[in-house]
């Protein structure tokens, strides 16, 4: 979601290049980077594998300058196209203000394009959005190759919503900037519309207004220990908030004695109850799992056996 910062007079929008693997998303970004004047771009960052395939995302900040007194920036991201990086794509897609779908025009790629488009819909849905409400354009890339489908066929198969489309050859740079310009305009139009005509914020049933720390949902079956009522971090006094949470740490290590995390250097250790069971306490303390009972029992048995044997020996000696 774009950030409008009236304090710093800045508008910052996030644009994501989406599409199947090897359709040319990173090449698009590289060409935008090449064509952007030095003063208007930051560093291009690629989190890629050794083989130069996108692992997490490629990123470049694009500064288009001051417009109506607002410094306007675009953050351009690509997603990894390979099928098994679906969850990574979902992360990159979070908070996107617009999506450019880079389709491979190859005759044998129509199925991959359709799958990637379905994946985009899924990932948007998981983020609570639909493709219809998202500023969206399609780029039919690799038009320079010999075996490409007609635009009419691609449109019929992929462009269900009849969104604006662009033809491109990212390798040569053709069509790259028009695609970006096309989407940017829609994103900024949408920004203005939603800024000025944003409907009143819905109040979801049961939702608290802007909680500082939302109540944690009951953690799944992994944690079965009963959690004591926890004071939210925001309400805890600062001097108690600094060190690690010993009770929680001990609880997670039920069965193995937990070593409370040492407070960081320079921080006064807060006073807290001793870890063992306090005298007269009925509730089970967090660290009661300390394995002390079993060895004690063994020791007592050994004493009883030894005492019995000694008594028997004494009786035998007396009888003799």
């Amino acid at each position: 979601m774009a950030q409008i910062n009236l304090g710093r007079k800045e508008v910052s929008c996030k644009i994501v290049y989406y599409g199947p693997g090897l359709s040319g998303k990173t090449t698009n970004l590289e060409k935008v980077y090449e064509k952007t004047p030095e003063d208007n771009k930051g560093r291009m960052t690629s989190i890629a594998t050794e083989g130069d395939r996108t692992l997490f995302f490629d990123y470049m900040p694009l500064d288009i300058g001051t417009i109506s007194g607002m410094h306007t920036k675009f953050q351009l991201y690509t997603v990894p196209g390979q099928t098994y990086y679906k969850s990574t794509r979902k992360l990159v897609l979070q908070g996107a203000d617009g999506v450019i779908f880079v389709a491979d025009s190859g005759t044998d790629k129509i199925e991959e394009n359709a799958q990637s488009l379905a994946d985009l819909r899924d990932n948007l849905a998981e983020n609570g959005l639909t493709l219809e409400e998202m500023p969206f354009v399609i780029q039919y890339n690799k038009r320079d190759l010999p075996d490409v489908l007609d635009i009419a066929i691609l449109e019929e198969k992929l462009n269900e919503g009849k969104v604006p489309h662009f033809t491109a050859s990212a390798v040569t740079g053709e069509g790259v900037i028009p695609t970006l310009k096309g989407l940017s305009r829609i994103v900024l139009d949408n920004l203005n519309k939603t800024s000025s005509q944003r409907p009143a914020r819905p109040k979801p049933a049961g939702a608290q207004a802007a909680p500082a720390q939302p109540a944690k949902p009951a953690p799944a079956a992994q944690r079965q220990a009963v959690q004591p009522a926890k004071t939210p971090a925001s309400q805890r006094p600062a001097h108690l908030a600094a060190p690690a949470k010993p009770a929680l740490a001990a609880k997670r290590n039920v069965g193995t004695p937990a070593r409370p995390a040492a407070p960081p250097k320079g921080v006064k250790k807060p006073v807290r109850p001793a870890a063992g069971r306090p005298p007269g306490a009925t509730a089970r303390p967090a660290r009661s799992a300390r394995p002390v009972a079993v060895p004690e029992k063994k020791n007592m048995t050994w004493i009883y056996v030894s005492a019995g044997a000694a008594a028997a020996a004494l009786v035998a000696a007396l009888l003799l």
Binding site: M1, A2, Q3, I4, N5, L6, G7, R8, G95, N127, G128, L129, T194, S195, R201, P202, P204, A207
Partner: peptide, 9 residues
């Protein structure tokens, strides 16, 4: 709600 509402500073 967080997704649908942008922060304005």
């Amino acid at each position: 709600e967080l997704v649908q509402n942008r922060l304005v500073f």
